[in-house]
């Protein structure tokens, strides 16, 4: 009687019979791939990196930064890929890009839930002013390929001086924390800013699925 069970099971796999470009049309392969995806979840993201030495990073101010994506346990060096007004887009070795406006994340591409676009200028002005209020508008791409907009009210507070260490260097900075809250979304960003008003390091939220990025600007 068990053979009937397998025929029934097979009837289900017919559901996954595929069409597609040439050798991607293999039903068996698709079923196995699908099964693997359903069982194991998303494929792991391999760590990767631009081949840039620490010396190169330290000797080329403004050319590189490092980003740590804690949600997928990956860090990488990023290089400039483009500039659009006050915004600079950086790219890493895995072709993930990060667009910053004065060091604040305005967009990402290549993360599981990208920040498609944001206005962050008020946050920057509040940091420059030593603290204050800011409004943000964040847009995400939904599972249904539409845009979801989050309006956020943020409060930026000065938290005092802090010393940060990286690549065997010790740097003086002041720490700011930005608490943002909107309908269904809240996060706290942290910025370490030097005397020249440059954000040396930050911990910034991208989206619920992408989590936080630690960004070190050199």
């Amino acid at each position: 009687m068990m053979h009937k069970f397998w025929i029934c099971l097979g009837a289900a796999t017919v559901a996954l019979a595929a069409c597609g470009p040439l050798n991607e049309g293999s039903t068996g392969a698709q079923v196995l791939e699908l099964a693997a995806t359903r069982i194991a979840g998303a494929p792991p993201v391999a760590a990767s990196g631009l081949a840039v030495s620490q010396d190169e990073i330290l000797s080329s101010p403004g050319k590189y930064m490092r980003v740590n994506i804690s949600n997928i346990n990956r860090w990488d060096t990023m290089a400039r890929a483009g500039t659009n007004g006050p915004r600079v887009t950086w790219v890493d070795g895995s072709n993930m890009t990060l667009t910053l406006e004065n060091g604040i994340i305005a967009a990402t591409r290549g993360l599981p839930r990208d920040l498609i676009g944001a206005n962050v200028s008020e946050t920057w002005h509040a940091i420059r002013a030593g603290g204050g209020k800011a409004r943000r508008e964040h847009e995400f791409l939904t599972d249904l390929d539409s845009i979801s907009t989050q309006l956020l009210q943020c409060s930026i507070a000065f938290k005092g001086p802090e010393v940060i260490e990286r690549l065997q260097n010790t740097l003086n900075s002041v720490r700011f924390e930005e608490e943002c809250q909107g309908e269904g979304l809240q996060f706290t960003n942290v910025y370490w800013v030097n005397d020249a008003g440059v954000i040396l390091r930050s911990l910034q939220a991208v989206s619920p699925d992408a989590g936080y990025l630690q960004i070190d600007a050199f």
């Binding site: 359903r38 998303a42 483009g82 659009n84 890009t97 290549g110 599981p112 939904t142």
Partner: peptide, 24 residues
């Protein structure tokens, strides 16, 4: 039973690599 929801994409907003940015 194996279930999924059409409104909840396991692939989320996509894992493809980033586009080349606009050149101004």
């Amino acid at each position: 039973t194996f279930s999924l929801n059409a409104n909840n994409r396991p692939g989320m907003s996509g894992r493809e690599t980033a586009p080349v940015p606009v050149k101004v």
